[in-house]
Design a protein around this nucleic acid. Sequence first.
DNA 1: CGGCCCTGTTACCGACCAGTAACATTTTCG
DNA 2: CGAAAATGTTACTGGTCGGTAACAGGGCCG
Lengths: 202, 202
Amino acid sequence: MTTDFRRKTHRSPRDRIVEAARALFRRNGIRATGVDAIAGAADSNKMTLYRHFNSKDELIVECLYRAGMEMDGFWQELERTHPDDGLAQLRTWVRRIAEHLDDDNCHCEMMSAAVQLTDEGHPGRSVIRAFKDAQRDRVVALCRKADIVDAELLSDTLLLLIEGARATQQTSGAQGPSARFAEIADAAIQSFARGGLAPKQV
Amino acid sequence: MTTDFRRKTHRSPRDRIVEAARALFRRNGIRATGVDAIAGAADSNKMTLYRHFNSKDELIVECLYRAGMEMDGFWQELERTHPDDGLAQLRTWVRRIAEHLDDDNCHCEMMSAAVQLTDEGHPGRSVIRAFKDAQRDRVVALCRKADIVDAELLSDTLLLLIEGARATQQTSGAQGPSARFAEIADAAIQSFARGGLAPKQV
DNA sequence: CGGCCCTGTTACCGACCAGTAACATTTTCG
DNA sequence: CGAAAATGTTACTGGTCGGTAACAGGGCCG
């Protein structure tokens, strides 16, 4: 029943706590998840948690930071598998997001957290903001490399579609508008690709 | 400091409570808003609140229901101001959403609530779901009336862009990708309009 | 072995919060 | 007016949650 992170690998209690927290935050929300539940799911206890993190907020920040780092890793992998091919990287990126849309792990940690961290001054918000800004820069750079007509515009288009797909998945389920996300995003890329076909709608 | 709904109009306590709740839910989140705060902001008190709603959850449902009704009213107004002109209705709709993106009232109540109402069985979720389904049907109908090439596809595209713009506004602020939402959505409509110009990207 | 650092256990505190009870007050309307 | 209905006030309950204190193992390394 309870996710046992210890048996899977011999990770440190700190690691198990962070991963358990991320899982619970995704599944039940940040505010709805108590520190006792986190410690329990990590097969640890509250005291150990508070020896590694001075507060729940600090743990939240670490979770967001890790989520960002994972995305960074994914970007590097993208560059490795499709070296110097911006268009292929863009397409692979979109496809991967589409595949992970209905994962329990749907990486909407950032969006979800942004909604729940209402305090404008919450340290987590700056982590999210920094990550989103970096992501935007990355996509723009990718579009440029892919010889896209208007890199900034396609970039923003894709970012809107992606966030929209994640949000819609939450409210309307997998059968909602997000079902055609990949198709839509591919069409957008297609219509911006220089020297490609004439822009098409399907 | 505290929003005084009573002075503005002589609404019933029930009305004031619901509107105060919606405002606080939007600003601070559902879980972060206590019933005392709601009653206080409504210039009323907790007892009166509980005489009208058996629980906080019931109040949440009423808030979501009202948000849906307001949108319904907006759709009717759209039909009234642009009778039988689907394309104009679509464009006006997009423009209005763009204008309201940075309102404090950014009508992301639904999305925000969906993230925070983690219980799959929460009655509020079905209200959201029903509203989103109805909205999708409406947009599809509008696209058909506007003589759009692929009504379902444009409809889903716009819905993704809209939700994406709202979500992105939360995480990246007004200067983020959502800044060009109107431009992007208009281009999408343009490229799907039958007999219009060749699809363009700007 | 023996000390030390990390971890686990239990119990507790104070704050907050949803919801209720009993009573006082105002508003509404016949 | 006068009674009934709606609203306001205060105080309380029971539970949850973030965070802390004190103490008890337990593994690692000299």
